[in-house]
């Protein structure tokens, strides 16, 4: 078992290297498989100015963003699925994406009228929206004895429904430009990646990712159920609170910078679980590696498949992810029931 799991960890690492190489070396503008090598001192053919610009100013920030978003989405999915003891739980499900979307799109649609224009305000709004909804959902689901997971999920459903209604309403007030931006943003895209925005994302998602990773031993005990986790010595109340905050921070950050990219937080932990089992010690790192490489690969497809135009990445993740998810459900029905 350990050998098998280590193999998947290595596969994930190789996946990251391969997809990163692909994203750095090829694209609609110029493609040369040797591009990532040209940084090495003493390489026979150093980069020319165009190559330098394309690789360091366009592709590299996009790669960093993709790796971060993929890692955080998959990691948050892993954490939420373990917390809810339900393989279908997803950060989107508890309303974080919906809340972030409402806030960010309000700025996109109405920002010009109140003088809050530009990506910084959109990002900030998305992050605040994520935090606010998570807090709201948490308060709704929280009682004297802590968070009730079923109520948490139901509150998430309600928040998402409300978010959907508000988004529909917003589209009436938006002008044509804002509408196009809104629809693009709702589908998610990494095209806006640049070095100015990246530090914000690195901080938000980096902190979330590290915090969740440090909690993995505690999260693991939730596999046996909340009660048993308490018997094992875990302060489950504090653990749940921390989990929700870190997930909100990470997903809020991801949504702020790239919009709503669905299915990654749902599918990647799912696949990883089928490969290495539910033990967080293996599941979390494998999910992180897979999430990062899959997101980078999907981003590469998104920008090359209809070049010179670009497809929103969410269209690809949803159209590949949803059928695959259904296939998984049918295939693994019995094993899933045994697992949870």
């Amino acid at each position: 078992m350990t050998f098998e799991r280590r193999r998947w960890l290595i596969a994930g690492a190789v996946g990251i290297l391969a997809s990163s190489w692909l994203l750095l070396s090829s694209g609609p503008v110029l493609s040369d498989w040797r591009l990532p090598l040209m940084w090495l001192p003493g390489f026979s053919a150093p980069m020319n100015e165009l190559e330098q610009t394309v690789v360091t100013q366009l592709r590299l920030p996009r790669l960093v963003l993709g790796l971060l978003v993929g890692t955080v989405l998959a990691q948050s999915g892993t954490a939420m699925q373990t917390l809810c003891r339900n393989p279908l739980a997803d950060p989107g499900l508890i309303g974080i994406s919906g809340g972030a979307a409402v806030f960010a799109l309000s700025v996109i649609a109405l920002g010009a009228q109140i003088g809050l224009q530009g990506s910084f305000w959109v990002s900030l709004a998305a992050f605040l929206g994520a935090l606010l909804t998570t807090f709201l959902v948490y308060r709704l689901a929280g009682g004297k004895t802590g968070v009730d997971v079923a109520t948490l999920l139901l509150a998430g459903v309600a928040i998402n429904a409300l978010a959907g209604a508000l988004l529909g309403l917003l589209s009436y007030y938006a002008d044509d430009d804002a509408l196009r931006l809104m629809s693009f943003w709702q589908m998610g895209s990494l095209a806006g990646a640049n070095w100015d925005q990246l530090p914000l994302g690195v901080v938000l998602m980096g902190v979330s990712s590290i915090a969740l990773f440090m909690l993995r031993k505690s999260i693991n005990t939730l596999l046996l159920g909340e009660r048993q986790a308490r018997y094992l010595g875990v302060n489950t109340r504090s653990l749940k609170r921390q989990l929700i905050i870190w997930v909100a921070l990470g997903v809020g950050g991801a949504v702020a910078l790239t919009g709503m990219i669905g299915f990654v937080g749902l599918i990647i932990p799912h696949i990883a679980r089928l490969l290495v089992g539910a033990n967080i010690r293996w599941l979390m790192p494998v999910s992180m590696l897979f999430g990062a490489s899959v997101l980078v690969l999907t981003d590469w497809i998104a920008k090359t498949i209809v070049a010179p135009a670009e497809l929103p990445i969410g269209i690809i993740t949803a159209s590949v992810g949803a059928p695959f998810f259904i296939y998984l459900l049918i295939q693994q029905k019995r094993r899933l029931h045994a697992g949870y």
Binding site: G233, N279, Y340
Partner: peptide
């Protein structure tokens, strides 16, 4: 839990 080995389960007792 699916995919949790017996020795890992027993080892979880040492969380504290």
């Amino acid at each position: 839990p699916f995919g949790l080995t017996v020795s890992e389960l027993v080892g979880m007792g040492r969380f504290w």
